[in-house]
Design a protein around this nucleic acid. Structure first.
Lengths: 118, 118
DNA sequence: TAAAGTGACTTGCATTATACAAGCATATGC
DNA sequence: GCATATGCTTGTATAATGCAAGTCACTTTA
């Protein structure tokens, strides 16, 4: 499984660098956003307007679980299917995403925050 | 210059997605961090503990300028040399970085926020 | 005055990640 | 049975990243 390895990256002892080791790409935080908005299932993530590719989604879900940001929960056996739910660590990114969304709204006019459908 | 192009990415009208189009990688936010801490010059960025490669640094500085997050300012002619300073748009990421640093400090114990040396 | 730095990059190349399309396994509905 | 759906995996092409080395225009030191 060369596609997903779990080393300790830790480029430095800076909390921002550590955070970016796990979150620093174009897709990971969008999945967290979806989870914070109440999405739970593979298909729901695929339906987001950014159109993530299936292999990247599968890869990020694994990495997020390995990083302790979410857990899988079985919602059906035969065939086994999972829902993805945020851990406290993942939930605590809500403020980060809110602040980032605020910045984005300010500097990219025309963008709109999606609201939770819960 | 295939290494640095300036299209409008805009994967969606989500402010988070727009923000990540510009900031979503392992290095960009670390450069912003350094700028917020008062660093201004190429060599200073290279000295950060994460050890960014020179080609990536040069590339990111160009992209950040193209994205309107920083500007170059000449501090010496012969040979011409620049300092990099944040625009208001860049400065306004301070809250984002602070929130992210806070999260990182919480979940990656042992990390320490660098403080401005200004 | 020649040699050795220094700062700010650029270039080349190998490795890794991303994107896109297609395929597969295990179901359910008809 | 056969078509359809969900949740992935695989293959392959393109792009990004990482590392080492080189360049260019000066400045400093011997």
């Amino acid at each position: 499984m060369a596609d997903y390895d779990e080393r300790n990256h830790e480029r430095s002892c800076c909390p921002i660098a550590c955070a970016l080791d796990h979150l620093g790409d174009k897709w990971t935080l969008l999945i967290i956003r979806d989870l914070l908005l109440g999405k739970k299932r593979y298909q729901e993530f695929l339906e987001s307007p950014e159109q993530i590719a299936t292999n990247i989604l599968a890869n990020r879900l694994k990495k997020l679980e390995a990083a302790g940001l979410l857990t899988q929960q079985v919602y059906q056996k035969k065939p086994i299917r999972y829902e993805y739910v945020l851990t406290a660590k993942g939930e605590d990114l809500r403020m980060v995403l809110q602040t980032l969304a605020e910045w984005g709204r300010t500097y990219y006019p025309g963008t709109k925050v999606f609201t939770a459908h819960v």
